[in-house]
Each structure stands twice: as structure tokens, then as C-alpha cells.
Amino acid sequence: MKIKIENRALKSEELKHLERITGEVPARCYQCGNCSAGCPLSYMMDYPPSQMIRLLQLGRIEEAKRAESVWLCVSCMQCYARCPKDVSAGTLFEGLRHLALREGKDYRKIKELDMPFLKGAPQQALVCGFRKFVS
């Protein structure tokens, strides 16, 4: 892939908005990769946490929003616990979920959910899942 980096994209309004709602500053990240090392979902992600932050650093927020990683993060906070720069990738993921959900782009429709799961799973899984995946 080849991209054109533009000053505008580095300081885009949407990026600033993401920083505002999350309180996180992606520029603080120095790409050591500790988050990606510890993230239990890294292996499944299209962009592991450090690369997600990299996309934000490069102003590629649209790509970040489209990434499946956003919906794989379970907020276990391992990334944040290990981050030497006190950046919370988990919070940035949550922010990206908000951006999508607030646009009404739900990741799952309640109707699509599996009935046995709905009956057998602990309530907290449902509540948490709805909050993370549904607007």
C-alpha cells in the first residue's frame, strides 16, 4: 500500500474529536509495541493496537475506524497496564467504537443474536456486549 501523508490529515477535526472524547494523545506513543505484545486479541486483529495507534498518528482515522480490531478489543486493559507512555490503546478503541456507534453503525443487530446464547449467557455478557456493539 502507498499513501500520501498530508499535514491536514495529521490535524483533522475528526482526529481532534477522537482525542477530545478519549482524552488520549496518540502522538505520545513511541511505538514500542508493548500493547501489541500483551494484547490477547492481537493475533486476530487486522491491525494490532500499536499499529492502530500508528494509523491515528499518520492521520489515517478512516482506516482505523474500518478496522476489525475495533470490535475485537474487549477492554481488558492489558495494553494500558503495560504502556510505558501511559497511552491507553483500549480507550482509543472505545473512542473509535463510539464514533461508529454514534453514526448509527451498529456492529451487531440484536435480532441477529443467537438464541441459545441469549438464554445461557450471564447477563453481564449481554449488557456489556450491547454496550460495546450496539448504538
Partner: peptide, 12 residues
């Protein structure tokens, strides 16, 4: 190139 994101880049 930006090897951290694995992309070729171009800057004006």
C-alpha cells in the same frame, strides 16, 4: 516508507 504501519508514503 513507514515501516511501523508497513506502507509506502509520499509527502509533498
Amino acid at each position: 516508507a513507514d515501516t511501523l504501519s508497513g506502507t509506502q508514503v509520499e509527502i509533498e
